[in-house]
């Protein structure tokens, strides 16, 4: 792999295909939603084959619906397995959420209450997926817009139990932690204190939007803007705690130029450089 030495990756977007193939930007890896490559053929496969020859890929699925009562989507798991065989991604992840149930795909990451019963369901789902794919997967902490009254335990406790019992890793989305902290009212650094950081296999940095619902300010993780200063601070905090880790600049809506994405990636890289040099990162965050 040509640029595997850099831990920073960016989202792979169709509008950047030709520029990436032509310019071969210096970036550690590309993230993609495998669902967008589950066609039988076409341009996206031709491009992905060429990109996979030059860069590592991280498959970030939204389709397994690991948190649903009826168990994960097995049809989708088979398709994901085939795509993994075709492109050999370096990491495979999905979300602490459910996206389909009762035969309908809801095209969003839906929350569920954190209980002993849902933990059991989720562990079984992860176990099934890891067995079928023959690899460890990562599970991402979600954005929450309101607390669910039915939850019996904190999200960090749920995730710690999940990684311990199923052997999966964590995909830590720092923007989601920040969004949750603002929507639910807690200090985001306490989340880093509570979660088992030794299980983190990938980190996501993204932008969010501030919206108003019924007179209440709510942050929505639309991945449609640059990373905010508070999330950069969390990134610095995390690097101080665990050192460099594969990190994604995630940008899915209002996708900017490749140049702009690479600038954000370079900013993340500069944090990593300071971290590797043993520097104190908090100063950079402002």
């Amino acid at each position: 792999m040509a640029y595997a030495e850099s831990p920073i990756g960016i989202s792979l977007k169709p509008q950047h295909y030709s520029e990436i193939l032509h310019d071969r930007p210096q970036i550690g890896w590309f993230e993609l939603h495998p669902e967008n490559y589950m066609s039988e053929g076409g341009e996206s496969h031709r491009v992905l084959s060429a990109i996979a020859d030059r860069y590592p890929l991280s498959f970030h699925s939204v389709g397994l619906s690991l948190g649903r009562a009826e168990g994960p989507d097995l049809t989708h798991l088979e398709r994901l397995d085939r795509l993994c065989s075709d492109y050999d991604p370096c990491r495979v992840s999905d979300h602490l959420a459910w996206t389909s149930s009762g035969g309908t795909f809801f095209n969003d990451l839906l929350p569920f209450p954190y209980t002993q019963a849902s933990l059991e369901t989720f562990c079984n789902a992860v176990d099934l997926v890891q067995t079928r794919l023959g690899r460890r997967i990562l599970v991402e902490n979600p954005s929450q817009y309101a607390a669910l009254d039915e939850s019996e335990m904190a999200e960090s406790d749920f995730l710690n139990a999940l990684t311990r019992r199923s052997g999966c890793g964590l995909l830590l989305d720092l923007n989601n932690i920040y969004v949750c902290s603002q929507n639910l009212g807690f200090d985001p650094t306490t989340y880093l204190d509570a979660i088992d950081l030794s299980q983190v296999g990938e980190v996501h940095l993204a932008g969010h939007t501030c919206s108003e619902w019924m007179g209440r300010k709510i942050l929505i993780d639309d991945h449609g803007s640059e990373v905010c200063s508070e999330v950069w601070s969390l990134f610095a905090d995390l690097l101080n705690r665990i050192g460099p880790v594969s990190t994604l600049i995630e940008w899915d809506t209002d996708v900017p130029s490749l140049e702009r994405l690479l600038q954000e990636a370079e900013k993340a890289q500069s944090y990593v450089r300071v971290c590797v040099a043993g520097g104190e990162l908090r100063a950079l965050a402002s």
């Binding site: 095209n107 929350p111 929450q144 309101a146 209440r216 929505i220």
Partner: peptide, 20 residues
């Protein structure tokens, strides 16, 4: 709006679902 008052999370996710 009535819906959002009962469950803001559900209302936002419904909006996300329909929008995406």
């Amino acid at each position: 709006s009535e819906f959002a008052a009962v469950s803001p999370a559900l209302a936002i996710h419904k909006n996300n679902f329909l929008f995406a």
